[in-house]
């Protein structure tokens, strides 16, 4: 029961804030809604017993990536409205239709697979997923089974860092 209340509240918040992100005319407001959306997703992770990911979501997404967006919004000080010009060849209707198709397809998948995914045990009976230390087990997996993806991800971050610095630097 408690989980149901938490889920529906969070789902409404997440979807509402998501709609707000893509419909608000002011970019700064969009960024604020995005932060709130990510915080709600973090709470949803806590409901799903992924405490470490919830904290990382807040730390990396809300505290890092979105601050970057806010910075860029402030640096990109526009003299005219960003959406003033429209490409005459732009196919916005087709875009909406395609998004509708994606939604339909996802709905189809959900309906088709409903009931076919059998949980390993009933969620109500399942205790804490990982006992005391979600963080320890995740770290253990990252450094054993997923060591190579982990290293690749760190190289990717390094490349991104160098790339961002090269791109953002003014030519002297």
């Amino acid at each position: 029961m408690a989980e149901a209340i938490a889920f529906y509240t969070l789902a409404v918040l997440i979807l509402g804030l998501g709609v707000a992100v893509i419909t608000t005319p002011k970019t700064v407001h969009s960024v604020v809604f995005l932060v709130l959306n990510f915080l709600c997703v973090a709470v949803l992770y806590v409901v799903l017993r992924a405490e470490f990911l919830a904290v990382i979501q807040v730390l990396v997404y809300a505290g890092g990536i979105v601050v970057l967006y806010l910075f860029v919004v402030m640096l990109v000080n526009l003299k005219r409205a960003p959406e003033a010009h429209e490409d005459p060849r732009r196919l916005a209707r087709l875009g909406l239709a395609l998004s509708g198709a994606v939604l339909l397809e996802l709905a189809g998948i959900v309906v088709y697979s409903y009931g076919r995914v059998t949980p390993a045990s009933a969620p109500a009976a399942a205790g804490p997923l990982t006992g005391a230390g979600n963080t320890e087990e995740l770290g253990w997996l990252l450094y054993t089974d997923y060591l190579i993806p982990f290293e690749v991800a760190s190289v990717l971050l390094l490349v991104a860092m160098v790339g961002a610095i090269v791109l953002a630097r003014r030519e002297s």
Partner: peptide, 25 residues
């Protein structure tokens, strides 16, 4: 007392920066 207490403190304090950025903006 949660098992990610210290990370919780780090991450929640990192949200405080929004107040400052948005106040200035």
């Amino acid at each position: 007392d949660i098992n990610v207490g210290l990370l919780f403190i780090i991450s929640v304090t990192s949200i405080g920066v929004y107040g400052i950025i948005l106040a200035g903006w």
